[in-house]
Design a protein around this nucleic acid. Structure first.
Lengths: 200, 200
DNA sequence: TCGAAATGAGACTGTCCAGTATCATTGTAT
DNA sequence: ATACAATGATACTGGACAGTCTCATTTCGA
């Protein structure tokens, strides 16, 4: 009975290797994403972040300084990753469908909820999210519209983007809807294009 | 120097008249709206609510029980009031303009930010807001579309509503935009109708 | 007139938590 | 081999705040 009562599987102690250190920051941010999405910024404690990342409070403070810094870095990393996927060779229709799917994903909806909730405390995050997300999506739509539907169609890009969000997105922000299925996303994209008279 | 050092103008003490009691609940909710809009639910203290309503903590507890109850009552009262204004005799264009103006107002944007932020803790508020707000607006748009643009146009109501929100609404939720001017609202409404081919 | 209702003022309690400090421990880097 | 960097575990501190309680005050209502 000397060694029996181990509660939690203890975390590795001591100085980590250089490789481990590199990995660590991102490991903490990954965990932070999950926890913040579940509890929101205000209701998340550093201790929760530490446990989720299998790391001690101390390490989080030494890497990030405070809770706000973890949050901003987490959001900014995710926002940057929003549009890293270059379009392979897709048409306006498939691009539209991908945008619908992406923007209704649990991850992006949660991210928006977080940033909206904290927009007065962290205004720069809202800017980052908008520049790296919406604006790039609209720019891509504009390009496809121009090349596939003619130069006049380009100006419809913001309206098309808005329609791709649509009521489902609004309801998802309010927590009133589950993620859309791929089929529904494709159907919604088609209907949006049709509403603007953009069908071939 | 006996009576000199009054800090805050003291609130009236003692048992209130019947009339005062009636007025009191609504007075507290009015104050709560302002404070919650400014600080959010989590960062608002009961003491702040009390001071804003010129009432003591004790009174708030005796009227509402706890902070969450103040919040839910405040939101529900406001949501109910969202669509109390019956349309006088207006056209699709003026209805659309009014919707744009209303939905971009500081009050409704703030309310949405609050409800989105707290949607997991208070899911019923999201439902209330959606039913009393969006759904009624869409229903009215549908009616005008049917009578003014023909029966086929009715199905465009959700798309039209979405366009009336548009990017400006999204940006306002993120705190990236100031309220729209009346002129801009009218212009935006016109453009939305045009995009769907709904101009006469 | 007078008891009791309703309140203001504010002290008090218990809890939660951010952030810091301490000490032991592990392993890196040299 | 060994100094020390980085960490885990955990205790601690200070502040904030929800909710309760006490006591004095005012005024209602009978």
């Amino acid at each position: 009975m000397t060694v029996s009562s181990r509660r939690t599987p203890e975390r590795k102690r001591g100085r980590p290797t250089a490789a481990e250190r590199v990995q660590r920051r991102s490991q903490i941010l990954d965990a932070a994403l999950a926890v913040f999405l579940e509890h929101g910024f205000g209701n998340t404690t550093i201790e929760q972040l530490a446990q989720a990342a299998r790391v001690s409070k101390r390490t989080i403070y030494s890497y990030f300084g405070d809770k706000a810094a973890v949050f901003t870095e987490m959001v900014q990393r995710l926002a940057r990753g929003v549009s890293t996927e270059p379009p392979p060779g897709d048409t306006l229709e498939t691009l539209a469908t991908r945008i619908v799917t992406r923007l209704h994903s649990a991850e992006l909806i949660g991210l928006h909820q977080l940033v909206i909730a904290e927009s007065s405390r962290f205004p720069e995050l809202a800017i980052t999210l908008h520049s790296n997300g919406d604006e790039r999506h609209i720019a891509r739509l504009a390009e496809h519209l121009r090349t596939e539907r003619g130069p006049e169609a380009e100006q419809l890009a913001p309206a098309l983007f808005t329609l791709l969000l649509g009521m489902p997105h609004r309801m998802r922000l309010l927590g009133l809807l589950d993620p859309v299925t791929p089929d529904a996303a494709e159907e919604h994209a088609r209907a949006s294009l049709a509403a603007l008279g953009l069908t071939r």
